[in-house]
Design a protein around this nucleic acid. Structure first.
Lengths: 230, 230
DNA sequence: AAGATAATTTGCGCTGGCGCAAAGAAAGAA
DNA sequence: TTCTTTCTTTGCGCCAGCGCAAATTATCTT
C-alpha cells in the first residue's frame, strides 16, 4: 500500500499542516498492515502510537469486565484512531482496534505528536475540534440508547452507516455488515437485529442478505428512526 | 457572589493562564445568577457564551424529539460548561443547562475565547485534554448502558457522584439527589430507582430519604456495580 | 395545626427484548 | 460434489424493567 506524505492532508487534523510537517510525520512513522480480524491494539495497551488508516476498515470496540463488547465507531481510510490514548503522556488505549478487512495504517509515535503539538498550535486546535465532534456524537448515541427503542436505534445505525460508507446503486444503498456487527453498533443482540430486519423486509424497507443489507426505502427508514412509523 | 480573576485558575483549562489573561477574561465577561430550576441556556440556542460555574450546581441535559430527557453531566463550581458549542464558530449548544440550586456563573463570550485561542496554544491544548476526558467518560457510560443492567448502572452513578461531590460523614456518604435525578443519570425510571434503593436498604447498603441517599456500605456498592453481587 | 404541594413507595399487569436451541441457508474448503 | 464452517432465521419461554394508579410520607405555607 503506497501513499505519499501529501495524502495525509485528507486527514482532518492534518489539513493545515505544512509539507514539511507531513514529511516529518511519514519519515518518523511506520506502516503496519494486518489481516481481517487482527488487532492494531487492545484496550489497556500503552498508547505509544496513534494511527491513520490508509486502507481497509477498522472497528473500535470496548469490552466490559464481563467480556461483552460494544462498538464505539468504525474507521474509514484517512481517519485517525487511537488518538484518545496518544494525546496524553503515559496513557493507555481506552478501546481496542480490530480490522474488519485486511487493513493498512500509518503508526505515528505518540511522542512525535507531543513534540509537534508544542510548536504547532493548529494541531491541538484541530484535534480539539475533532474531539468535540466525537463528544457530540457520543452524547447523541447515549441519548438514543437511553430513550429510544431497538427498532429506532437500528434504523439510526443503518442511516449513519449509509452516510459514512453506503454504496449507492441504482436501486437503493448497499451496506456490508453482519447481524452481529449491527447488534454491537445499536446496543442489542443479533437475534433482535435479525427479527427487525425480517420485519422491515416484509414492509419493503430493506432487503437483507448474508452480511449484507440493502436499503430500498431510505425515506421510510428515516420515519422509523424518528419513531413516526408504527 | 464575589470572586477574583485568580480564582479562575481553579478551572483546569485556565490553570496555565497568565494573570493578564485571567484579568482580560473577567473584564470581558458577565456574571449571571439564576435560581433553582431555571436555565443558563437551552439545547439549540446559539452558543454565544461559555460558562464557568462560580457557585451552585448545574445539570446538563439533552432532550430527544419526543421530549424525554437524559442527564449528561452535573457541573460543580469552577467547572466549565457550554464549551462544546462555544469552541466552534456559529454553533448551537448541544444540550441544555439547568440550575439544580441557585447558581452563579461567569459567562465568557465565545468570540473572546476564539481570539485568545489564536495566540495562546496552551488554551486549545488544555481544552483538547478536557475534551478527551469527556469522550472517555461518555464511552464508558455508553458501554455501561449497553451492557449492564439497571442495578449496576445505578450503583455506578452513586459511586461516580460520591467521587465528585459526596459529603463524607462519620458513617458513610451523603448524596442529595431525587429518584428522578438518579433515574435520568442512569437511564432508567424513578420507579425502578425507588425499588432498587428499597432493596439495597434491606441489604444495608444504603439508607434512602427524600432527595437524599446515604451510602452506608460503599464497598458493597462497588460489588454491585461490578456485577459480583447476586 | 391544618392544608397544600411535592417526592416517594408499592401493587399490579404488561410487554419488549433477550437468549437458548435447533434448523436452514450461504460460502468456503477439500 | 460433499463436507465444514459461518451466518442467519425463528419458535419458544421467560423476566427485567416499565409505567399507571393509588397510597404514603416528607416538606413547605399560611
Amino acid at each position: 500500500m503506497k501513499f505519499s506524505p501529501k495524502d495525509l492532508r485528507q486527514v482532518t487534523v492534518f489539513q493545515n499542516a505544512t509539507d514539511d510537517d507531513l514529511d516529518q510525520i511519514v519519515r518518523n512513522s511506520i506502516t503496519r498492515s494486518i489481516e481481517e480480524g487482527e488487532f492494531f491494539f487492545f484496550q489497556g495497551d500503552p498508547a505509544n502510537y496513534l494511527y491513520v488508516l490508509v486502507s481497509g476498515q477498522v472497528k473500535l470496540l470496548q469490552t466490559n469486565p464481563g467480556g461483552q463488547q460494544v462498538n464505539l465507531r468504525t474507521i474509514y481510510p484517512w481517519q485517525m484512531f487511537g488518538a484518545l490514548g496518544a494525546v496524553r503522556e503515559q496513557a493507555d488505549y481506552p478501546a481496542s482496534a480490530q480490522a474488519l478487512e485486511n487493513s493498512t495504517a500509518l503508526a505515528i509515535q505518540s511522542t512525535l505528536l507531543h513534540e509537534m503539538m508544542e510548536t504547532r498550535p493548529y494541531l491541538s486546535f484541530d484535534l480539539m475540534l475533532l474531539m468535540t465532534s466525537y463528544i457530540q456524537e457520543m452524547q447523541a448515541r447515549y441519548r438514543e440508547l437511553a430513550t429510544e427503542r431497538v427498532e429506532q436505534r437500528i434504523a439510526r445505525v443503518l442511516l449513519r452507516l449509509t452516510a459514512q460508507s453506503g454504496q449507492k446503486t441504482d436501486e437503493g444503498i448497499d451496506l456490508a455488515f453482519s447481524r452481529q456487527d449491527l447488534a454491537e453498533m445499536s446496543g442489542t443482540t443479533l437475534y433482535t437485529v435479525s427479527r427487525v430486519l425480517a420485519d422491515w423486509e416484509r414492509r419493503d424497507l430493506v432487503r437483507a442478505g448474508r452480511e449484507q443489507v440493502h436499503i430500498t426505502n431510505p425515506h421510510g427508514l428515516v420515519r422509523v428512526a424518528e419513531g413516526l412509523e408504527k
